[in-house]
Amino acid sequence: MKAKPAAWKPALLIAGLAVALVVMVVVAAALGQVNIPPDQVVGSILHRIGLDVGPLPEAAQGDNALWLVRFPRVALAVVTGASLGCAGSVMQGVFGNPLAEPGVIGVSSGAAVGAAGVIVFGFTFLGNWTVVGAAFVFGLLTTLLVYVVSRSGGRTEVVTLLLTGIAVNAVATAALGLLMFASSNDALRAITSWQLGSLASATWPAVGAVTPCAVVGVAVALTCARRLDVLALGERPARQLGVDVERLRLLCVVVIALLTSAAVAFSGIISFVGLVVPHLVRMAVGPGHRALIPASALGGALILVTGDLVARTSIAYQELPLGVLTSLVGGPFFFWLLRRARSRAGGWG
């Protein structure tokens, strides 16, 4: 017997995704209202870190356009995408259900209520971290709620999970509506664009606020990988194999809330990335979480950088909302997944 069949495949996928992400980041920074050739983008970065190599941007205000507008936006896309992809993979692992996703089951909307509340009422008690902090607290509460409500007898039924998601989304949407009702015109515009999912408000402070959440979330998720594999056997067998299931669950719920709040705080609700990406990764390299989690993070980042590029360049001087774009692609995919899950399980089991 082969000891570890195709052990090179996950490594290849992760390396490939990393390379693709780096390339895409440079391309995304290069394209926009003013195009800056990729070699000048790289040159600008190298000059900033003290290496006088490569050409500087020639366009008027090119360097400023890169460092004040594009780079923070691309960086936020990377962080948000990685958070969503990683959150999706962890959530599916801990729910034991491939249809779990922060947007679908309402965790994103829950976190959004927290963030929107802070924006509308103008709270700043945690400084730069206020929005993220509020999103985290609400995201955590929503995750716990969905988790407790949708499980029975140690399992999460597809139907219960999705119905719980509908209920949570309904309440959260209503709460967001109330907040919008109560807010001024300016705030209203901000919330609407943000509710559709957009990276337009990206700034370095925003990137600085969410990056630590995302990094901690992904790092802790990686330490849970092997235990999440075992959890696929079910709770009891996992416990019999020495996994402290209660502890793992709690850790994962916190990780999901951290990642979702990092993703939602400044970009709003971007659905389906956490659903589509882990699924594609599973099709490529199998369900093992040690490959799935990092590959989903990288894949999510890649998709969001690409998606945001399309959103802001496909129509001249206009921006498509990113969340609308991901839902346009992700919705049909979700539909296909539902049908497949149904035919595989022979009904809603």
Partner: peptide, 9 residues
């Protein structure tokens, strides 16, 4: 088993 791991896995 919630995910399609191979028998060897």
């Amino acid at each position: 088993l919630s995910f399609p791991f191979t028998a060897g896995d």
